[in-house]
Amino acid sequence: MKRREFLKLSTTMAGAAMTVYMPAGWTPARAAAKWKVGFSQCTTLEPWRVQFNKDIQAEAKNQPDVDLVITDGQDKTEKQVADCENLIVQQVNVLLISPKESAGLTGVVEKAIDAKIPVIVLDRNVDTRRITQFIGGDNVAIGRAAGEHAVKLLGGPGKATGNVVEIWGGMGTQPAHDRHDGFHAFTDKEPGIKNLLNNQSGDWKQDKAYNIMTTALRNNEKIDLVYGHNDPMAYGAYLAAKDAGRDKDIKFILGIDGLPDEGVTWVSKGQLTATFLYATPGAEGLRQAVKLLKGEQLQPVITLPTMLITKDNAQAILKKNGLL
């Protein structure tokens, strides 16, 4: 993709570390033949998370000095906490973590730091500024881009009208709140836009979004646009509308993730109107861990770029990824 196709994102993130924090007494000296890097993944139940793991595993093949240990929190905060405690016991040189919930993982992250293990947080932050680095997309900026596009689809600034169904991701996750806030920064300026639901959480899952949309369709005769906080939920809403025979009436369904074999494919088929790339931070996270272990300077925050994906560029993306 050409660089100009990517949307510009802010260089700071709410709640992210603004300075590089290193545990007291930590040094990058190698203690064994290989560096042991632990990665605590919160779940592999979501396709984006599966891709996340594939990306970090692919990067590990390029890092012969790294022994990468990956754990799966199985979508349970208590399991992820136990995983991190196990990685601490293993004395990993660096801990990479993508938390299920910000508050629920803060304590064990602090425990790792107290054990002189630097922590790089990926995608969802934790409630401490003692982390070494945060890597992820700017969810507020992506939400704003989605809101701006929704206003355009519904008639344009000052003219937009329509009934909107918003399906949240996990209510305890910062990305869901950021995607909501960014979206409403644009749509709330339009008096003609009506929001039909009050903070309905699909927990990032397609089947839960299907059920939310089924109820919304039953209770509302007119729905013009669906904003799903990720592509599977947007697609779940589409399937519910299709099963109810109303998919042709609901012209605009937006999502976020932009995986080629999911969101991009659904956009190409006209099932979603648009999606926004939400790149996984796995590969970059491991590269940054290696830089740290080599004694190189890190940035406190790395913000990954996004881009709008519509029918205009979906097929080109599919071709690039060997799907056409």
Score class of each variant (00 low, 15 high):
L7C: 06
L7K: 01
L7M: 10
T12F: 08
A14Q: 13
M18C: 06
M22W: 12
W26R: 11
A29P: 05
V37H: 08
F52V: 08
N62I: 05
V69N: 08
D72N: 15
G73M: 02
K76E: 14
Q80F: 07
A82R: 10
I88H: 08
Q91P: 05
L96A: 04
L96T: 07
I97F: 03
E101H: 08
S102G: 10
G104K: 03
V109A: 11
K116H: 14
I120Q: 01
R130H: 13
R130D: 12
Q133F: 07
F134S: 08
G136K: 10
G137L: 09
A141S: 15
R144M: 11
A146R: 06
A150R: 04
L153Q: 14
T161Q: 11
G170V: 04
H177R: 14
R179G: 02
H180W: 14
D181E: 12
K194D: 08
N199G: 09
D203W: 08
D203N: 15
W204Y: 12
D207P: 06
A209C: 09
Y210M: 08
L217W: 00
N219H: 06
E221T: 00
K222D: 02
V226P: 01
A234R: 02
A240V: 05
A240F: 01
A241M: 03
G245I: 01
R246I: 00
I250L: 00
K251V: 01
K251C: 01
D257G: 07
G258C: 09
G258H: 06
W266S: 00
A274N: 02
L277M: 10
P281G: 06
G285R: 00
K291H: 11
L292D: 07
K294Y: 03
Q299D: 14
I302N: 13
T303V: 15
M307S: 08
A314S: 13
